[in-house]
Amino acid sequence: MTGSFAQFSLRVLIAIALVVCALLIWQLQSVLLLIFAAVVVAVVLDAFGNALRKLAPVPEGVSRLLAGILIASVLIGAALLFGRQISAQLSQLGDTLPPAWENFVDWAGPERVESVIDDFAPDGTSLASMVQTMFGALTDALSGLVVAVLGGVYIAINPKTYHKGAITLLPQRARDRVDAASRKTGKALRDWLLAQLISMLATFLVVYLGLTVLGVPSALALAILAGLFEFVPLLGPVLGAIPAVLIAGTVGIDTALWTIGFFIVWQQIEGNAVAPLAMKFAVEIPPAVTLFCLLIFGVLFGLPGLLLGGPLTVVLWMAIKTLWVEPRVSG
């Protein structure tokens, strides 16, 4: 009787501990997402560091630090060369988008647009407050990006220390399997990020050339937005096309229709040619799984969850595959 009561008490304590851990994780979700973003940055630096080590025999930590300096130099150089033009176009974009939205509302019908907004917005929420909330979320995301980049640099300088420390926290019997799974997951994440980078760069170049030919104002700024949105799988291309179509509508209905057709054609080319080629050596995840994971992460964590939904899906997919599916299939 005493043994049964002791086992029951132990199970209750374990259940309470699991609930407390779940609540603690939920309260720290923003911090955990920042840590994950830092890991993503470290993976990017590691990939570039590996490429540098093939060119010059330098230590791992130094190669990753040089990779970070090189990336920062390229970004700063691009900002110095095109900063004034980008700043002017972004300012013009900020001035043009509100009238473009008003033109769209007039064309679609104010009552119909308000009905759609009411369906998606909470009770009592106006469009202005939604936009204000969105800009606040973007500001928080940018400040979080700075922290993530700094954390990623620290992790990338000596990743083995953090990896070994995390593995040491696990029970002895699980360390080898988790260690092997984490290495496979890291490689899959690195390959996925490289594939996304190729797609983002291709989207930026094609959209810039296409919008310039079509005569859409602020083509460079719109191309940058489209390239950045490409980081979000499935939903990103649609989000990147919306500002361009709205701005094209200020030029004329013909330009807007040509812009819509251009994005449809490019997404077909990108989805059927560029992306499969870029993903050839990366992890392949069924589109439905990616879509539902993005929606889940977006609902749970908001904008940061949506932005990090792609790499989170890759990590979750590989963790389940290597820790759960493969051992049972091989067993």
Rank of each mutant, 00 (worst) to 15 (best):
Y162T: 10
L142W: 06
F48Y: 12
G94A: 04
A256H: 02
L34V: 11
L303G: 01
P311M: 02
A241E: 10
A38M: 03
G152R: 12
V146D: 04
G298S: 07
A166Y: 10
A15H: 07
A79R: 02
I71Y: 06
A273D: 03
P98H: 00
S63E: 09
P243Q: 07
P327L: 09
L291E: 01
Q172R: 14
S126Q: 13
T2Y: 01
L211S: 07
G215Y: 01
L306D: 05
A51S: 05
I198Q: 09
E230I: 04
P237K: 10
L234C: 00
Q85A: 07
V289P: 00
L306V: 13
R183C: 09
P122L: 04
F104E: 08
P110L: 03
I167E: 07
L308H: 07
V314K: 01
V113M: 05
S143V: 05
I285Y: 13
A278S: 14
D176P: 00
P327Q: 12
P304Y: 07
V19L: 14
K321Y: 13
V131Q: 13
N50K: 09
G302K: 05
F281P: 00
V20E: 11
E270V: 01
S126C: 11
P311Q: 02
M130I: 06
R183V: 15
T212M: 03
D118C: 02
G152C: 14
I224H: 13
G151H: 10
L225F: 15
A278G: 12
A42W: 08
I296M: 13
W107A: 14
L291T: 01
V40I: 14
D140G: 15
S87Q: 05
A100L: 04
K164T: 14
A156W: 11
I198T: 14
R177S: 14
V232T: 10
G302V: 02
E60A: 11
A244F: 12
T161G: 04
V146S: 11
A188W: 05
L97F: 00
E60T: 04
S115P: 00
P287N: 05
K187T: 08
I117E: 14
G94P: 00
V251I: 12
L90T: 00
R175F: 10
L170G: 10
